Amino acid sequence: MSKVKFYYDPESLSYRKIERKKRKTFAYISLFLLAAFLFSFIIIFIGNLYFESPKEKALKRELENAKLQFELLNKKMDEAEAVLANVADRDNNIYRIYFEANPIPEEQRRAGFGGINRYKNLEGFDNSELIIETNKRLDILQKQIVVQSKSLDEITVLAEEKEKLLAAIPAIQPVSNEDLTRMASGYGMRSDPFTKVRKMHWGMDFTAPRGTPVYATGDGIVKRADAGSSGYGKHIRIDHGFGYMSLYAHLYKYNVKRNQKVKRGDLIGFVGSTGRSQAPHLHYEIWKDGTRINPINFYYGSLTAEEFSKLLEHASLENQSLD
């Protein structure tokens, strides 16, 4: 029960009861509530400034973790870009040069993405710049990987073709050194054994006994195995592809037939002296794109450096040919 308060009235010389007006009471109460509300607001505001709620702490930790993950992702992209740059350098300066392919321009490898703003949905956030730059780097890196992947696919095809080319090019001596009596005559101007007139000798003459094995010098298909060409007698022509053809003349007999596939080192015939020949020997020619070229440059697959040096010395002598 609230206390009753009195005041002294000097006019009536008596104590009168203090009567509190309702309006005044309502004003006091309103003022008290307003002060309490303002005090609470100030406390909450200051608390929000200096104190974090559990939810805010959790969100802040998630944000810091996200930033850390983006930083780690950028470091990994630094490493990936370095590795990819090394692969691209070897691709342009080793692989593509070896396989005679044009290098991929740097601007094509590092081209960005023009046109519309593909990162607009990432704008407007506290860390938008970090997020956008990371996504740009990732997109460019992915594009570079695609470009490099396609280049390596192309190199794979070229390597397969190169392997076929290396197997097809005439690369061994058609008569083994064990069976060879001597290298009688080389490519170039030589004295004709019948007319004694100097004329062009388009191949190399390997002296060997009749019946000595003759081997295919590269992979290919036998296009001719007959005696229908003037001067060559029984001879074989092998089409190696890539513009190369080899010819083996003055044979004693054949070990292959027309349209037969042969591999380098296969026995195709035997040394003889058919056609325009002075003695048993093999006349050997190489053609490239329809033009006869010096066979001396095509023995890297069967001779040592010393053997090749001796062969080169004998081939350079301007002596008399055997056909």
Rank of each mutant, 00 (worst) to 15 (best):
E52F: 12
Y215I: 01
N92T: 03
N297H: 15
N255C: 07
Y98E: 10
K24N: 13
I238H: 09
I44F: 15
V256G: 03
P295N: 09
G186H: 00
V175R: 04
I268F: 03
E306D: 09
A168D: 02
F37E: 06
K76F: 05
V83F: 09
N102G: 05
N319A: 04
Y187R: 06
V175H: 05
S309Y: 10
L141W: 08
D226Y: 09
N48G: 12
Y187H: 09
F41I: 13
N86P: 00
E307D: 11
G241S: 03
N86S: 13
K143H: 12
I44P: 01
L158P: 02
Y284A: 00
A208G: 10
A249L: 04
R109D: 04
A82G: 00
M245G: 04
I104Q: 08
K257E: 10
S321D: 10
Y300P: 03
A35F: 14
A208Q: 09
K3W: 11
E160T: 13
V214M: 02
F308Y: 14
W287C: 09
S191E: 15
K24M: 10
G112Q: 05
H283T: 06
G265C: 10
F6A: 08
S302M: 08
D126R: 13
I286S: 01
E56T: 14
L33D: 02
F26K: 15
F113D: 01
K143N: 13
Y284M: 02
N48C: 11
H283Y: 11
H281N: 10
A184Q: 04
K3E: 14
V222D: 06
D126T: 12
I236G: 01
D205T: 02
M77S: 03
Q69R: 15
M200E: 11
G112L: 02
L180I: 05
F6E: 13
P209R: 15
S149L: 02
S2H: 08
I172G: 05
E52Y: 13
A249N: 04
H281Q: 06
K55D: 10
F32Y: 08
H314V: 10
A66Y: 07
P10N: 12
D179I: 02
F125I: 11
N177W: 06
R210E: 15
H283I: 08
V271Y: 05
F45Q: 06
I145N: 01
F298N: 05
G188I: 00
Y95R: 00
A58W: 00
R276K: 04
F39R: 03
L72H: 11
F39M: 11
K120S: 11
M245Q: 14
Y187N: 01
A80Q: 10
L13N: 13
A159D: 07
I46P: 00
K76P: 01
H201F: 01
P174Y: 06
F270Q: 05
N319G: 14
S316K: 13
D9T: 03
F308N: 12
